[in-house]
Amino acid sequence: MGRRVKVTIDGKVFSAEEGESLLAVALRNGIDIPHLCYEECLEPYGSCRLCIVEVVEGFKKGITTSCTLGCVDGLKVLTNTPEIEKHRKVLFELYLAQAPNSEKLKKLAEKFGVYSTRFKEKNLKNDPLNGKCVMCGLCVRVCNDVLGVGAINFIGRGYRATVNVPYFEESDVCKGCKACVEVCPVDAIDYSDVGDKRVMISWSNTKVDLIKCSVCGRYFSPLPVFGSVSKKLSEYGVVCDVCPDCRKRLIAKNMTSSGGYNSYA
């Protein structure tokens, strides 16, 4: 653990670890700062710019993003000055025009008092992400930096940039793990489990085989994910081709019958 420091947010003093993200401290203490691109498990990325705060005492005074602001002793910030509200409003408006179909985004904007946008909706014909993507980059970062899979990445730059699989063709590395779906703050990524296949609709319909639970027969986990895990575990004699529900049941049964060690991880 690093050194403890005191930071002041909107006049209230909080204890924080030196260097940790100010946004984390605020969120932990119930101070609501809007954010789209921040996830605890990832390094701060600073792309959505919604988390802006005003530093009144610290390394560099003025408006900056709180996710990338490291806590130092004596840091003082304000989260709701008129200027921040003004800029945040414009940012939300830009988002609403960029991703007009995202309900989650609308809700977030409304929570901060922005109900409409002065900008024309972006032309998003045939968008695999349904006109919902806000380019926060969480899916790309999870797929590449956390999982090391690299099925998707940014394509193009600037205003035309998007996220998808290379050449917009079915990916042969996507494991269908759905981490991108889970992490997406605006529900932009579509998938569907059909029979023994998972279809990553947004990723050019990449298809991944699912495995069948050896107990109930339900398809539950993508084979590529399962494959690597099960190989490791089977070395320890652990049985894995069982869906979570059945596993719970089996564990319970095991415990009541033998009360001993169970081999169902």
Binding site: F154, I155, P166, S171
Partner: peptide, 11 residues
Amino acid sequence: PLSSLYSVATF
């Protein structure tokens, strides 16, 4: 990953 080469090529 091909995705990252493709990303570079389009950037």
